[in-house]
Design a binder for these strands. Structure first.
Lengths: 340, 340
DNA sequence: TTGTAAGCGTTATCAG
DNA sequence: CTGATAACGCTTACAA
């Protein structure tokens, strides 16, 4: 049992089974178009078992010129919107015989670039980027001819993209508030350099317009830098005609706002209705949060499916896939309080 | 610019620079003990730039017999306790030139075993398992002589293990409640097949004992199968002397309990104090949750450090590292209500 | 049906 | 200091 040093190779198997190395390869891969007698097949399999032989995937990759590995460039796996995406990607990858390399970029374009180079060296078969921040990466992918699908944004026409229907999601959220009788509806959001943010603002405005409610820029709070919910609340409630409902960019922001308002004595949803976005944390609060659910798992899974298709057939037409969001009505929204 | 098909190889570089392939390898790796004239070095680097040459890491792995890749077997990356661990692992891996393969096992031992085989074939340099469920995996790692470090449990003596101080964490939580005047303190927990659960129960009992409070089995609710917080609350509050404080196994459970109690008209923390464990979700609730913070990021980082050390020096003594937890006092705990 | 031999792109050993 | 040449372990024509 002193099998200390080296792992057995196909050579060892071949020798033990009394066949050639190619025969071993043929039976192990069930190489189509090649027939092996039951007799030798059995001998080979026997030898494999005895030696506990594991084919060396590295050598295989080198010979076949593919690694069956894909990479996921994620902003930060510790951010609650990404684990489910990663999960979706991994599930699809696994079912197709691919492994998943996880790369946190923190949105730093230098890190993205470094990881891009590493993945090029490691010859991954394809890459999924969640929210690309350096378009140079896209250029490299094209130049090096490596499949790359983008999750969320940017919506580059030269790459496959999978994203959620932010406009509709946002529209539904605001329309829900309107149907509850609210007309003073605030939207608090982050820097609109990302198209996602723009789309949500668009949905917000569209719902107001469809309901005949004039857009009031006092009710749209955009934080170009760090989001300051406290400041937003201060400003929102110091205007003559303050909002009776707030639609936040994310569940996280909605929860912060809920906390601030609660601390100030407002009752939710009696005094103020609140809607979030994402549905990552919405079920944990008291009261639970009405929110727009994003299909994170499905987005990841779809991105992985598209990537794998493209790996297998690089000439497929580019796809931009929009996945539906869903309004989840919980406890943080209620009809407009008459006297407020 | 029609560089369609194949990526350039060290051969191409050598030819363009007018040197041999080994020279290219030497300058690119700065091979120690080998001096290259500034002249040729420059020519090689020039050629690399012109061809945009990326050394093939697969070929390198094959030649060097190491992949500089590690795998993380995680129960489910979508479970909020794991993303931070993964992040800690990835950060350390990246800084040491390793890449991270993410494998979700869902605690299914068959999946673990399959992934183990895949990682063996892919010749990863080492594996970190978060909560191993199939000890066969440990056996294989030993037999195949591949470094494996365990996060959390089980505490196998033949492997490096990194875990949090559950006993102390639990003790601190319960002692905090005792100091607030509570004597009827319930603990709701999951199946104690895992040592983690046992340790938390141990800390709970130890705190009671140190305070001279007799242990009452009516107050310890163990769910061997699916946790049913509703049932736990029902039973707990139907006994003659119901609890005034509840210590839950996790933040998630604590939040469910908080919701149920709130729905039934209890005020938290005035009527009932609640403590969670993990600190993954505790800051999101209203009121925010007092909890025991686990150092997930550090656990991941430490596990990765140990793994990489061991890869580089397999003869190091086995380490079992216990990391401290920290009680975070927020709003869900208060002095015992006199009349309750 | 099975065996032989030529890649795959590096690293590493040894002469020169 | 530089250049052949042999591994590394597998796949895959091409022969037999």
């Amino acid at each position: 049992m002193a099998k200390k040093k080296k792992a057995p190779t196909s050579w060892d198997v071949a020798r033990l089974a009394g066949v050639s190395r190619s025969t071993v390869s043929f039976v192990l891969n069930n190489t189509p178009g090649i027939k092996i007698s039951e007799e030798t097949r059995k001998r080979v399999l026997e030898a494999v078992k005895i030696l506990d032989y594991k084919p060396n995937a590295i050598a295989r990759s080198l010979a076949k010129q593919k690694t069956e590995a894909i990479a996921f460039f994620v902003l930060d796996i510790a951010n609650p919107v990404f684990p489910n995406m990663a999960r979706g990607i991994e599930d699809v990858a696994r079912h197709n015989g691919y492994i998943l390399l996880l790369c946190n970029t923190d949105g730093k374009s230098l890190r993205e670039l470094r990881y891009m180079n590493i993945m090029l060296e490691r010859r991954v078969d394809g890459i999924i980027v969640g929210a690309l921040s350096n378009e140079e990466v896209s250029k490299i992918a094209q130049k090096k001819n490596i499949p790359l699908v983008i999750l969320e944004h940017p919506r580059l026409p030269e790459h496959d993209v999978v994203y959620a229907d932010n406009i509709k999601g946002s529209y539904d959220a605001v329309m829900h508030l309107i149907e509850l009788g609210h007309t003073r509806i605030a939207h608090i959001t982050i820097n609109p350099e990302s198209i996602i943010v723009q789309e949500r603002i668009e949905g917000y405005k569209k719902a107001l317009k469809d309901a005949g409610i004039p857009f009031d820029s006092d009710l749209l709070k955009i934080f170009y830098d760090k989001v300051d919910e406290e400041l937003a609340v201060n400003e929102l409630f110091s205007i003559p005609n303050p909002p009776t409902a707030i639609f936040a960019f994310s569940d996280f922001m909605a929860i912060q706002i809920m906390k601030i308002l609660t601390k100030r004595g407002y009752k939710i949803p009696q005094d103020i209705s609140i809607v979030g976005f994402d549905d990552t944390l919405a079920d944990l609060t008291i009261p639970s949060l009405t929110t727009v659910s994003q299909p994170f798992y499905e987005m990841g899974a779809k991105a992985a499916e598209i990537l794998i298709e493209r790996i297998k057939n690089p000439n497929l037409p580019i796809q931009h896939v929009k996945l539906p969001t869903k309004l989840i009505i919980r406890e943080s929204t209620a009809p407009k309080n008459k006297e407020s």
